[in-house]
Structure formats: structure tokens, C-alpha cells
Design a protein around this nucleic acid. Structure first.
Lengths: 113, 113
DNA sequence: ATCCTGATTCGACACCCGTCTACCTTCATT
DNA sequence: AATGAAGGTAGACGGGTGTCGAATCAGGAT
């Protein structure tokens, strides 16, 4: 099937990114693959102290409250943000470690050639 | 609506990532937000000379040929890979500059706080 | 206790996306 | 020119996703 001698001679690359790992990483990238969620991430990170409450985030979009809440949940379940309640408001902040991990994947760290 | 004095006092953040820019970047991230496409990117980058022909890529997945072709088109239209025909085969290679640009977005480069 | 507000959850709808089979295009070889 | 293979295109099907309105939950204030 793979005519190894004619197509790319002498190359038999290892998986290097197995299906499970690729699925987990792709899920995180899919969370960022939405304009609203991408803007949410940057709005949160740009706020004072690196945290923002939902009311400020909702005010920045022409979207209904439940929609923002849905996007925040997607980001939360992807491990990209954390949200904790302090009194009446819920404050969200980004997880720089998670974003850095995704960044490394894009830079092909650990890829031979 | 945005009770600025009670929620996060003294913060009026600029857009910092307008809707158009966010849409363009999100489209690129969405292209990476699929396990098959993420593995395709790494497979291409890991091949000798940083390029791989479609026959090798197709052989690495349990997917039909047209499906791989579809994913390659998504990656190509997102500006993440380039493909040029040399004789019978079409060789794909990644665009490191595009991936680096996405990487910078995740690292929140240019975000104040 | 009651009410009000911030935020999430629940259903529902329209739309997009990944996958396939069948067919077409392009190139090399005979 | 004709055949065969590599790769792409077209159309269709099933499941996933963004969006909303209405209902619900959680805290603070009256």
C-alpha cells in the first residue's frame, strides 16, 4: 500500500503523536478554535490581576448570557481557564501552563527533522 | 448594564483582539482542533526534508483517501501547510511561520497584565 | 422571609463538520 | 492513444456545535 521505495524513499516515521494524545490536544485546540472563546481568553488575561468576572465578559459581546456561560464552560472543561466564586460574582483566570503546553505543540517541539 | 464600579473597579480594557482578527485566528485554531489534522501536521513535519506525499500520509491512518484529502485542504486553506505537485505525487510541508504566529497568540504576547 | 441580581442549566433550533462512496482530473508509461 | 495509478471533487448522511429563551440555583440586601 505504501510504496515506500517510490514515494519518499527511506523514510519510516514513528507515530510521534499517538491517537490518544492527539485527541486530547485537539480537544484543547478546538476550544480555542472559536472567535468568542479566543476573545474571552484574551479579555480575561488582559484584565487587572489576570482575572475577570462574568458580568464584564458578557458586556463585551453582543451575545446572550447563557451563550457566554456555555463558552466559559468549554474553556473550563478544556483546562484553559479556572473560575471561582467570590461572593456574588464568579471570577475567571487563564491557566498559562496549559496555554504554554499547546504553544509547544504548535512549535513542533520534539519533532526530529 | 456593566456595573463597572462594583464588579472590577477601575478597569476598562480595550478590545485588544477585535472580532475580525479573532475570527481569522480562530479559523486557524479550528483547523488544528481535529485529531487527524494535528497528527497530519506532525507527520509532515517529522518526515525527511520536512515534506511528505499524500500516499504516505494516507497509509498512516485508517481513513479513506478522500477524507485525508479533505483534511489536507482544510490545513492548506488555513495557511498551515503548502502542497505542490512534483510528477505523480503531491508533496506537503508545514509553514513554520504560521504555526509560530498561532503559538504567540496562545502565549498572550502583547497582553498588558 | 422576601426580593433582586449574577450566573448556570435545560431544551430546542439551525447550522457546520467529519466521514464515506462514486466519479473526475492529472500525470506517467506503454 | 490508452491504460493505470495518485490525488482531488461532489454529494449525502449522521453527529456535533453555537445560539437563544425560559427556568433554576446561589448570595446579598431590604
Amino acid at each position: 500500500m505504501s510504496n515506500q521505495d517510490a514515494c519518499t524513499p527511506g523514510s519510516s516515521p514513528p507515530p510521534l503523536l499517538d491517537a490518544d494524545e492527539a485527541a486530547a490536544l485537539a480537544a484543547a485546540f478546538k476550544a480555542v478554535g472559536d472567535p468568542t472563546r479566543l476573545r474571552l481568553l484574551h479579555l480575561i488575561a488582559a484584565h487587572d490581576g489576570g482575572e475577570a468576572c462574568v458580568c464584564d465578559l458578557t458586556a463585551a459581546f453582543d451575545l446572550a448570557g447563557p451563550t457566554i456561560s456555555h463558552h466559559l464552560r468549554v474553556l473550563r472543561e478544556a483546562g484553559l481557564v479556572t473560575g471561582d466564586r467570590r461572593g456574588t460574582w464568579i471570577y475567571y483566570r487563564v491557566r498559562p501552563d496549559a496555554l504554554a503546553a499547546l504553544s509547544r505543540v504548535l512549535l513542533m517541539e520534539g519533532v526530529p527533522a
